[in-house]
Simulated assay, not measured.
Amino acid sequence: MRRDLLLRPGWWCEARVVHEDGRAYRDACRATGPAHAAMWMCTDVRTLLPRLDAADAERAHRWLREDGAPRVFEATADAGAVRYTWSVRRVLFLHVPHISRVRG
């Protein structure tokens, strides 16, 4: 099978939350394009704005005013003892063709 049929370009989006005591959480999403990746990241950032300190909230607002374009590949913000990191990167996904069941 040809390589171009197996690999599909896309964007990998991750959000990481790390607490001061070491607890960590991660959320991820596969985006089909830069607009989808930016929408995912902007939604997550808006949800956390009330928890950010003034400096990080201002940086987040500035990023959102600039249309939240995925040219910003990583953003980090601190809210007290919690650190939030969002990243978006271009990747190649391995396409796995759907296999139908054969009925007998």
Rank of each mutant, 00 (worst) to 15 (best):
L5Q: 03
L5Y: 00
L6I: 14
L6P: 02
L7C: 02
R8K: 12
R8W: 05
G10A: 02
W11L: 11
W12G: 00
W12K: 14
C13A: 15
E14M: 08
V17E: 15
H19Q: 13
H19E: 05
E20Q: 13
D21Y: 01
A24T: 14
A24L: 08
A24V: 06
Y25K: 12
R26V: 14
D27P: 01
C29A: 10
A35C: 06
A35Q: 10
H36R: 15
A38W: 01
C42I: 02
T43D: 14
V45Q: 13
L48H: 11
L48G: 01
A54H: 06
D56M: 04
R59H: 10
R59F: 01
R59K: 12
H61G: 12
H61Y: 10
R62A: 10
R65M: 11
E66K: 09
E66D: 15
D67H: 10
P70S: 09
P70W: 01
E74Y: 07
E74I: 05
A77V: 02
A79S: 13
A79L: 06
V82F: 03
Y84G: 04
V88D: 03
R89A: 11
R90G: 00
L92E: 15
H95K: 06
H95F: 03
H95C: 04
H95Y: 05
I99D: 14
I99G: 07
